[in-house]
Design a protein around this nucleic acid. Sequence first.
DNA 1: ATGGTGGCCCGGCCA
Length: 284
Amino acid sequence: MRIATWNVNSLTARLPRVVEWIGYAQPDVLCLQETKQADSAFPHGAFEQLGYESAHHGDGRWNGVAIVSRVGLDQVSTGLGSPHDGEGTRLISADCGGIRVFSVYVPNGRSLEDEHYAAKLAWLAALRRLLADSASPSDLVAVCGDFNVAPEDRDVWDIGHFDGMTHVSGPERAALAALEDWGLVDTFRRLYPQEGLFSWWDYRGGAFHQHRGMRIDLVLATWPLAEVARYALIDRAARRGEKPSDHAPVFVDFAMDGVGGASGRIGSGPGSVEARHSGTERRP
DNA sequence: ATGGTGGCCCGGCCA
């Protein structure tokens, strides 16, 4: 089961690149963020032609999230169900191939003094409550998306550059860690410990080519699922070329025939997964 | 260079 997440920065502008990417990456489930579309504008037909069902939650100009799946798409739910939902078009979830999949677009926060920063922390806390209220850590759950938080110093190109800025602050990282405390694992990071592995690069100043990026797009999974993660990739090829998003897509492969099997018992916790590959791109 | 790029949609916001 290949589960992917991609902040596309307008699906209207990015549809050709997304169709191209699905064609060669062949995700089973693709979580999208920042479609910037209303539900009525979402291109369900384009995905259907590729063999995928899709569900979208957006109101037009900002945000907008979707799940695209070729392994089933049932029990679709939208929003946080919380006063902290804000604009309300930052979360959608569905059952896909036996996994509860969430596509999330965490608020940016703007700056540490901005009211949007407090709203970001409240949003992450509400996400934790939603998970705790609607699922169990022993379920198969994947929470994928643009978290707008770099979990650790190795997830940014130069931690000194980010002093006093969002995405790396203690409270943001603590809010992310609270999700992990509930029972989620950063699956990509668990497979690949190297520094210099980023998923977002500013459009400005040639940041991509100078490797000035951050890893803020994550595939979090409950332990029963994380234990069968076998391979992951940040596809930097999708950040190159014509009209790229400023984010690269990220995918993780899960060996579903190993769920609950010999490769790991449910709830076995840290230490049960070995990194088996080193195929991700890294800085030269 | 008080900038830069790109998307929304057409002056300014947002990332």
